[in-house]
Design a protein around this nucleic acid. Sequence first.
DNA 1: CCGCTATTTCCAAAGGTATGGAAATAGCGG
DNA 2: CCGCTATTTCCATACCTTTGGAAATAGCGG
Lengths: 102, 102
Amino acid sequence: MVIEEAASQLEALGNESRLKIYRVLVRAGQTGIPVGQLQERVGIPASTLSHHLKRLVDAGLASQERQATTLICRADYRSMRALIGFLSDECCAEEGCVASSR
Amino acid sequence: MVIEEAASQLEALGNESRLKIYRVLVRAGQTGIPVGQLQERVGIPASTLSHHLKRLVDAGLASQERQATTLICRADYRSMRALIGFLSDECCAEEGCVASSR
DNA sequence: CCGCTATTTCCAAAGGTATGGAAATAGCGG
DNA sequence: CCGCTATTTCCATACCTTTGGAAATAGCGG
């Protein structure tokens, strides 16, 4: 993972609304969750939610799949795994840190 | 870790300059590194660097300690550990993710 | 107290982000 | 093709971020 990508993913997650959205996505598992239900769950206006979702998708943290008129959203676990890996490896490579204490 | 804190730390790391700075801090280990050396290392004007450092410190990701005229900066490993824990636990609690594949 | 180095704060400009209502679009089911 | 629901795009507004030069401050050593 290159630093630009890590930064853009961290930026995407570095907003309370988006982090909440992302958390709901994660809890929805592989099944995913439609935008509408997501909206009820997080209580954000549709327009705003759509903007935030786009940021998460653009950052590679989530994906969307059309099923008729509804859009199913899913967290991309691989990217989160890669991001956690980056934080552990690149940013926590020295003594005293989680990576070395394992 | 509460979601507000996680979001603010992710936001602090979600900027390429700050992520680079943070990485240098981590690599400097417990010894830490003076602001001046950090500046040479990342090639950012002193003023800008100072702003970024403040953000990292405010987010609890780094700390600073005066030693005479120089300021030693250090990464706060505990906060990174907590952040990685949050991402693994809160955001990756379902099937298919890193947390469950361990 | 002075000069010196290290670092911050002040200030201002430019651009980006967040927000959400209103209008547009997508994709059925009939 | 129409109406309907789901979702996005358009648009505008307010606010926040990033950037960096210049001036201010901190803390020595003399």
